[in-house]
Deep mutational scan, measured.
Amino acid sequence: MSGNGNAAATAEENSPKMRVIRVGTRKSQLARIQTDSVVATLKASYPGLQFEIIAMSTTGDKILDTALSKIGEKSLFTKELEHALEKNEVDLVVHSLKDLPTVLPPGFTIGAICKRENPHDAVVFHPKFVGKTLETLPEKSVVGTSSLRRAAQLQRKFPHLEFRSIRGNLNTRLRKLDEQQEFSAIILATAGLQRMGWHNRVGQILHPEECMYAVGQGALGVEVRAKDQDILDLVGVLHDPETLLRCIAERAFLRHLEGGCSVPVAVHTAMKDGQLYLTGGVWSLDGSDSIQETMQATIHVPAQHEDGPEDDPQLVGITARNIPRGPQLAAQNLGISLANLLLSKGAKNILDVARQLNDAH
């Protein structure tokens, strides 16, 4: 009898209710805020589980004197976190989706994509230029951005401005803007500013005609071990179906173009009346040469937790077992079709030249 009692006690200790789920994140304040929001949602869904947040620095956090596009290494903000995932030191990792490459290392998958916040870019102005827009900034004003995508589009749109690289986390960039006289304004992701509670610093939100956004911008991705079915089931509740389908289309477009950090590629997606609209573009580094096109596809946005595919093969690095396969494939095909259209119009040449120029500098 006593033996059975011990077995029952052991089973209770090993039951999922007692389990601590370890969540990996970057150390920056924004990353911690984003991770806290994901953990809060998981806690609400699984009140019996405990969650421990483990923060670590990544290569991208450490190399702050070089433009991201020049470092010449993929997975700048993800490699150390993936290493911890691989060694079973954490069970899942919360990322900004735009930091996750469209091809993940073997053994990993994006197990959830959370509801997207505003994906557009924002302009934050130096205190002396508050009330201005990019259009009304004085001639030769210097605007800071760490992104080739932003610089290429904005140089084309605002030729009277000069664009220079600015690195560091959000706090560091804002301090550089406010305390030094080098920059009249800087460009940042609206979602990051909003998550930090800095709505009052948003001086201008850039519309798609001015600057399309990065693939996955404004959404959070939760990376897990691809074979860890328990954790895949656990994080599945975080999937937002519309965000998922938009981001599958965007990531398929980028992957098929073979774009990345070192080339200016941008997108804009919208879901309306059962249609998914995808606009994508590529630019030369100075913005003088560009190709942009829009395509659409009829896609039914499923309700969360309709029964999805059981075999769960990944699409552009994403596993969404609780979302039907048909809409996911339709979104992926839309991204591939748009990429093929741009490639047929000469996108590869623009991107190759951009890559060579970026590598040469």
Rank of each mutant, 00 (worst) to 15 (best):
R19T: 10
I21F: 09
I21A: 13
R22I: 14
R22E: 10
V23N: 01
V23E: 01
G24R: 01
G24F: 01
G24Y: 01
G24E: 01
T25W: 01
T25D: 01
T25S: 11
T25F: 05
K27F: 12
S28G: 11
S28P: 01
Q29T: 09
Q29I: 07
L30M: 07
R32P: 01
I33G: 07
T35C: 08
D36W: 07
S37P: 06
V38P: 01
T41P: 06
T41W: 08
L42S: 01
L42A: 06
A44Y: 13
A44Q: 10
A44L: 10
S45K: 15
S45Q: 14
S45Y: 13
Y46P: 01
P47D: 09
G48R: 11
G48L: 13
L49P: 11
L49E: 01
L49W: 08
E52L: 05
I53M: 08
I53R: 08
I54P: 01
I54E: 14
A55P: 11
S57T: 07
T59F: 15
D61R: 01
K62S: 11
K62A: 11
K62F: 07
D65N: 05
T66Y: 06
T66H: 08
T66R: 09
G72I: 13
K74D: 05
S75C: 15
L76E: 05
F77R: 01
T78C: 14
L81C: 08
L81T: 10
L81R: 01
E82F: 15
H83W: 14
A84P: 06
L85A: 06
L85V: 10
E86N: 06
K87N: 12
K87L: 11
K87D: 13
N88G: 09
E89H: 08
E89C: 08
E89D: 12
V90G: 03
D91C: 05
D91R: 04
L92P: 01
V93A: 11
V94R: 01
H95G: 04
S96Y: 04
L97Q: 01
K98A: 04
K98D: 01
D99M: 04
D99V: 01
P101C: 01
P101D: 01
P101A: 12
T102R: 04
V103G: 12
L104M: 13
P106Y: 06
P106T: 13
F108N: 08
F108V: 08
I110A: 01
G111V: 04
A112Y: 04
A112R: 01
C114W: 08
C114V: 06
K115G: 13
E117R: 07
N118D: 15
N118A: 14
P119N: 06
H120C: 12
A122I: 04
V123C: 07
V124N: 04
V124D: 01
V124R: 03
F125C: 01
F125K: 01
F125S: 04
K128A: 11
F129C: 07
F129R: 06
F129M: 15
V130A: 11
V130C: 14
V130H: 13
G131N: 09
K132Q: 14
T133M: 12
L134D: 01
L134W: 06
E135K: 04
T136V: 10
L137R: 05
P138M: 12
K140C: 10
S141K: 08
S141F: 08
V142Y: 10
G144F: 01
G144R: 07
T145Y: 01
T145K: 01
S146I: 08
S147V: 01
L148C: 09
R149T: 01
R149C: 03
A151M: 04
A151F: 09
A152Y: 09
Q153M: 07
L154M: 09
L154D: 05
R156S: 13
K157M: 12
K157D: 08
F158S: 09
H160D: 12
L161M: 12
F163Y: 10
F163H: 11
R164M: 12
R164L: 10
R164V: 10
S165A: 07
S165K: 05
I166P: 01
I166V: 06
R167E: 01
G168K: 01
G168Y: 01
N169G: 06
L170Y: 15
N171I: 11
N171Y: 13
T172C: 08
T172D: 01
R173I: 01
R173T: 01
R173D: 01
R173V: 01
R173S: 01
R175W: 11
R175N: 11
R175F: 03
L177V: 12
E179S: 11
Q180I: 04
Q180N: 15
Q181Y: 14
Q181D: 08
Q181W: 10
S184C: 15
I186R: 01
I186F: 07
I187R: 01
L188H: 12
A189W: 01
T190H: 15
T190F: 01
A191K: 04
A191W: 01
L193R: 01
L193S: 08
L193D: 03
L193V: 05
L193I: 05
Q194V: 14
R195H: 10
M196A: 12
M196K: 05
G197F: 07
W198K: 11
H199V: 14
H199M: 13
H199Y: 14
H199I: 12
V202L: 11
G203H: 01
Q204C: 01
I205W: 01
I205G: 12
L206T: 06
H207C: 11
H207E: 14
E209G: 08
Y213H: 14
A214R: 01
A214S: 07
G216H: 01
G216P: 01
Q217M: 01
Q217W: 01
A219V: 13
G221I: 13
G221M: 01
V222I: 15
V222T: 01
E223D: 07
E223R: 01
E223G: 07
R225F: 05
R225K: 04
A226N: 03
K227M: 06
K227C: 01
D228E: 15
Q229H: 11
Q229A: 07
D230Y: 07
I231C: 03
L232P: 06
D233M: 07
L234V: 14
G236E: 01
H239R: 01
D240C: 12
D240T: 06
P241L: 01
P241H: 08
E242M: 05
E242R: 09
T243F: 01
T243G: 11
T243K: 06
T243C: 01
L244D: 01
L244T: 14
L244R: 03
L245Q: 09
L245M: 14
L245G: 04
R246C: 05
C247F: 06
I248T: 05
E250R: 01
R251I: 03
A252N: 01
F253Y: 13
F253G: 04
L254Y: 01
L254F: 01
L254G: 01
H256D: 03
H256F: 15
A266Q: 01
A266S: 01
V267P: 01
H268D: 09
T269I: 01
T269R: 01
A270E: 14
A270T: 07
D273E: 11
G274A: 15
L276Q: 04
G280E: 01
L285S: 01
D286T: 08
S288Y: 06
S288A: 13
D289G: 08
D289W: 13
D289Y: 11
S290H: 01
I291R: 15
Q292F: 09
Q292G: 08
E293I: 09
T294A: 07
T294R: 10
M295F: 07
M295H: 03
Q296V: 12
A297Y: 04
A297F: 01
A297G: 10
T298M: 09
T298I: 04
T298Y: 10
H300K: 14
P302W: 11
P302G: 15
H305S: 06
H305I: 14
H305M: 07
H305R: 05
E306R: 12
G308T: 08
P309Y: 01
P309F: 14
E310V: 09
D311S: 05
P313F: 01
Q314Y: 01
L315Y: 01
L315Q: 03
I318F: 15
T319L: 01
A320D: 09
A320H: 01
A320Q: 03
A320M: 05
R321N: 06
N322Q: 10
I323Q: 15
P324V: 09
G326L: 05
G326R: 08
P327T: 07
Q328V: 05
L329Q: 15
L329Y: 05
L329D: 09
A331G: 15
A331R: 01
Q332F: 05
L334T: 01
L334M: 13
L334F: 10
G335L: 01
S337W: 01
S337K: 05
S337V: 15
L338M: 12
A339I: 01
A339C: 01
N340Y: 11
N340A: 04
L341F: 07
L341P: 04
L341A: 01
K345R: 04
K345D: 05
G346K: 01
A347T: 14
K348Y: 01
K348H: 15
K348R: 15
I350R: 07
L351G: 01
V353L: 06
V353R: 06
V353N: 15
V353D: 15
A354M: 13
A354R: 03
R355G: 15
Q356Y: 05
D359C: 14
